[in-house]
């Protein structure tokens, strides 16, 4: 397996506060990686640095063999990095289907080198909505969706960019047990179709059942990286979670 994502020595500061320091992370093509850590450990900052929402001061990010340093978030999306947000951020004045159409208009056409036709885009919107079980909600406003439907829309919109790498940032917070299972299954199915996935999650049951590899951050540093059941027994990880 070749490396799809290569993060080397990434560091980020907010004023005097060091949010990330010397992060190295390699994710192979087709892998399912879980990223965990206590609140404020730098998980979301790392995601933002990979996706280009924030720019890291130190280190480099390589994707698909090329550096993406200095690229804006939308350019990284065009290269194949997609993300969902911790708190769902739908376009509230657009219907569910129109939300899904945005990446089709702005990312998919860029990559395929031609514009989709109105009909093609329409069909793909419905296909994506069906995939996450929102098929009958296409004309609804995101404001009328339930928590889990909102999370599904968030994932479907990320999927609409036709990504190589999907970063799911706490896409299960606040969901019930059965709903968590539903989302995990969905992500595993996506992975089987060839998409590399990084899952950031607090719900350990979900992370453990999903991840082939587990990475742990604490206070902006990587403290563990390996097989999930080994990592979870690592004394440093226990200390980070339980306090000293």
């Amino acid at each position: 397996m070749s490396a799809l994502l290569n993060v080397a020595g990434v560091g980020k500061q907010f004023g005097g506060f060091i949010a990330l320091e010397g992060i190295d992370l390699t994710v192979a093509q087709g892998e399912r990686v879980g990223l965990i850590g206590p609140n404020g450990s730098g998980k979301s900052t790392l995601v933002n640095c990979i996706c280009g929402t924030l720019h890291n001061e130190k280190g480099t990010v390589h994707f698909n063999g090329q550096t993406v340093d200095g690229l804006a978030a939308h350019e990284r999306t065009h290269r194949g990095i997609a993300r969902s947000f911790q708190l769902p951020r739908p376009f509230v004045t657009m219907s569910v289907a129109d939300n899904l159409r945005v990446p089709l208009l702005y990312t998919v056409h860029t990559r395929s080198g031609r514009h989709l036709t109105v009909e093609e885009a329409d069909a793909r919107c419905h296909e994506l909505a069906d995939l996450v079980g929102l098929g009958d909600k296409c004309n609804k406003s995101p404001k009328d969706l339930t928590q889990i439907e909102m999370r599904k829309l968030e994932l479907a919109r990320a999927m609409a960019t036709d990504p190589k790498l999907l970063i799911a940032d706490e896409s299960m917070a606040g969901l019930s047990d059965s709903e968590v299972g539903e989302i995990v299954n969905m992500l595993i199915k996506l992975n089987e179709s060839g998409i590399t996935i990084i899952m950031i999650e607090h719900i350990m049951r979900a992370v453990m059942s999903f991840s082939q590899r587990l990475v742990v951050l604490d206070s902006g540093k990587k403290i563990a990286d390996g097989k999930p059941d080994e990592v979870i027994r690592n004394p440093e990880v226990e200390r980070a979670y339980l306090g000293q």
């Binding site: 996706c51 939308h74 997609a82 947000f85």
Partner: peptide, 11 residues
């Protein structure tokens, strides 16, 4: 609606 989400969609 949301610029950060727009960028993430490739806008």
């Amino acid at each position: 609606d949301d610029e950060v989400a727009a960028e993430a969609c490739g806008v």
